[in-house]
Design a protein around this nucleic acid. Structure first.
Lengths: 249, 249
DNA sequence: CATTTGCGACTTGTATACAAGCATACTAGG
DNA sequence: CCTAGTATGCTTGTATACAAGTCGCAAATG
């Protein structure tokens, strides 16, 4: 057995064959005045979440050392943090690999995210104010602007900002951070298989939530938010077989 | 300024004055065949969660090195993991300290835990079976047995087992693990200020949930679970002022 | 006497060397 | 040709040395 985890033999290995580890694109000059491990953690995390590093890609400590001209210690620190977040699987004496996007993980991630966001919504609804409505509609407007610019990175950011407002309005920033941590797997999936043609629907679904809140229709808002979030499974169902193989299911 | 965090000048410092760091009781011979960092992480985590190490206690890497006769590397690894879990605050060039139990953290921890457990309950209720009922009542019976034996450690374990069943019945083990991670702050609080006289009430509240589920009364079960979990704030309100000072509020 | 300045003992961050295990490729033998 | 054993290069885990920053106390200075 190669190693305990199911590792896709797909393009991840091809990538690692031609380049160093598929990280050669991560050109990033780091500031030696700040913590090296923090910067490495940030760079690697973004690369994994944005699926520029496919699931199963080997993460060689030494390769990263050579690439950034630092010692193994801060690299190890960064990888250990990623492992703690569930983004990297470490197999002693074998290697470290970008964690797979499992169906089970996706379901757990979705369940937690949906439960917590609905709970936030229920807290916010009774205190709903016109200012909140304006702020959320502004966030949606920002999304529309970004769609026009064809900027996927910007859209994900704007989408996150919209949902973040729920946490802000509820006065529970800590809960939002927990949501962010839990929905990482979900985010990776969306980044991996996002369809631009769905973006207008996202806009509509977001507006449906705000409309219901404006009407004071708590149940309707909850329903709208739930169906919006559950769309990920519709998207998943539309994913062709060969695309699924790059995930571990 | 000593360091950026609010550190209580309470018994934590007294402890660190007389002993090494208050860790001298952590007599624990570790197995050199297993990962040293894993074992240290486990030992320290238990000590913090069970509040044998009070909030604010300094965690000196070198002290732990001397105590267990290992190098700083695995000690650092363990502490970094604890920092990632929010159990330790690390201040570069200053020191590492057992994280305070803040009121905000307590509220977030409670909110997440309650939201997720209620969500699990809603999933389980429609598929409720007599076998599930029996399993939960057995868990409660175990708690009653442990109460008689005056074993606080055992009670917390049995209590956790009861709630764990919800995750098991829902078939969402990953969600339960997230709950476990989120409710750490809550657990620390309960361990710090648990009153034996409340234990019979816990039994009753648990049974109320099971009774409602047996009746097919989903709303009632949800209500029972919510009030049970919300009891932590009643307990908090009963805590005398001088006891609160050991927490950072 | 009050203030400041420098020394020393701590802290965490980083660099490097060594130990131990696993997978693969190669070689010798059947 | 096939198989078994070995050698080599990889991986992570651990140990140790050094760098850089912070705090506190003590001594020197105004």
């Amino acid at each position: 057995m190669k190693h305990p985890s199911a590792r896709p033999e797909s393009s991840a290995w091809a990538n690692s064959a031609l380049g160093e580890t598929g990280l050669e694109r991560l050109a990033f000059t780091l500031d030696r005045h700040l913590s090296v491990s923090d910067q490495l953690h940030s760079v690697l995390r973004r690369a994994i979440v944005e699926v520029r590093l496919l699931p199963g890609t080997p993460i060689s400590e030494n390769s990263i050392c050579r690439q950034f001209s630092v010692s193994r210690t801060p690299v190890r620190t960064a990888i250990q943090r990623l492992a703690e977040e569930g983004l990297v699987d470490v197999f002693p004496q074998l290697g470290s690999f970008v964690a797979p996007i499992s169906l089970a993980g996706l379901q757990d991630s979705h369940f937690i995210r949906r439960s917590l966001e609905v709970a936030l919504l229920r807290e916010v609804a009774p205190k709903w104010t016109p200012e909140m409505s304006r702020a959320m509609r502004e966030a949606v407007a920002e999304q529309e602007r970004v769609i026009a610019g064809n900027d996927p990175d910007g859209f994900f950011h704007a989408d996150e900002a919209f949902h973040h407002l729920l946490g802000t309005f509820a006065g529970r920033e800590g809960v939002w951070q927990a949501i962010m941590a839990a929905k990482v797997t979900l985010t990776r999936f969306h980044r991996y298989w996002a369809k631009p043609e769905r973006l207008p629907d996202v806009i509509r679904e977001h507006l449906a939530v705000v409309d219901a809140l404006d009407r004071g229709d708590v149940a309707g808002a909850e329903q709208a938010l739930t169906t919006h979030l559950d769309m990920v499974f519709v998207i998943f169902g539309q994913m062709p077989e060969d695309q699924r193989r790059n995930l571990s299911l």
